[in-house]
């Protein structure tokens, strides 16, 4: 077992996810299955091969520096649970 329930708890916390008490074991097992599967790649010899940054055979996809009007404030805030003075209202940030 590579991943313990403690790791799963930590990752859930970083991801802002709540894992129901009874499902912790299941998640831990599935995490390990995924990692074991990915481990197959470790059997390949990658000596001298640069890590891949992107799977597409492309580089230098660039835009010219031209400003274009975006969306209105009304549209921007359309899905906000709460808005305040044109901003997305969020609860207290710091303890």
């Amino acid at each position: 077992m590579k991943v313990t329930t403690k790791d799963v708890e930590y990752i859930a916390q970083l991801s802002r996810l709540t894992i129901p008490e009874g499902e912790m074991e299941k998640f831990t097992e599935q995490f390990n299955q995924i990692l074991n599967y990915a481990d197959i790649l470790n059997k390949l010899d990658t000596t001298g091969i640069e890590p891949t940054a992107n799977v597409l055979p492309l580089s230098n996809v660039l835009r010219e520096d031209v400003a274009i009007e975006g969306v209105s404030q009304e549209v921007a805030l359309a899905n906000a649970p709460e808005a305040f003075e044109g901003g997305f209202k969020v609860p207290r940030v710091i303890e």
């Binding site: 520096d65 975006g70 404030q73 805030l77 044109g86």
Partner: peptide, 21 residues
């Protein structure tokens, strides 16, 4: 003139959430 990864204006000031996409 425009943002790093989209074409919204970088102008300072402006009403909140009006240079967005």
């Amino acid at each position: 003139k425009s943002k790093a990864f989209c074409s919204c204006s970088t102008e300072f000031g402006g009403a909140p959430n009006t240079h967005v996409c």
